[in-house]
Design a protein around this nucleic acid. Structure first.
Length: 151
DNA sequence: GCCAACGTTGGC
DNA sequence: GCCAACGTTGGC
């Protein structure tokens, strides 16, 4: 099993939106960055994902989801009405993928970016590094446990 | 709202 | 294939 961190802006789609879905399961669409897409393609059923809220007063990790369906074409790229529309992606030759995730746990509090940055053991995490914009990053098992221990 | 960092685009 | 211009991300 592998671990990941996925960023999202709660004003667009947050953990509460995931919680509101039937079976608390939804597809994770809108990834339009090749590196993030490639990470997503590596995700396996059962992998665990930290849900991270960005662009808010207190950015940080708010809960855990689980991969329930591995990468398949992101159909929002084919929809001219979608904000994620990409005319270069077609059903015949899809450029972007998504996965399905199910909410596992909503944390009682946010594990803030500030906390993550303050922990030397987490200095290698992409999310604490300056200028990082990648919305999907791998997390090691040691980092995963370290973060959970903060709750 | 600002702006640094970064990815992508397109002219050459 | 280079690189300037542009758009986006996301912390602050």
């Amino acid at each position: 099993m592998n671990y990941w961190l996925m960023k999202t802006e709660p004003s667009v789609y947050g953990i509460d939106d995931l919680a509101a879905q039937p079976d608390q399961t939804d597809h994770w669409d809108g990834i339009r960055n090749y590196q993030a897409r490639n990470y997503m393609r590596q995700m396996k059923k059962g992998d665990r994902v930290f849900i991270y809220h960005s662009n808010v007063k207190e950015p940080g990790i708010v809960g855990i989801a689980e991969v329930v369906r591995e990468a398949y074409p992101d159909f929002t790229a084919w929809d001219p009405e979608s904000k994620y529309y990409d005319p270069k992606s077609t059903p015949e030759n899809p450029r972007w993928d998504m996965v399905d995730v199910r909410l596992v746990e909503r944390f009682p509090r946010t594990i803030t970016l500030e906390e993550l940055k303050a922990d030397p053991e987490l200095a290698d995490m992409k999310v604490v590094q300056k200028g990082n914009r990648l919305s999907i990053t791998p997390v090691t098992e040691a980092q995963w446990r370290r973060i959970l221990s903060k709750l």
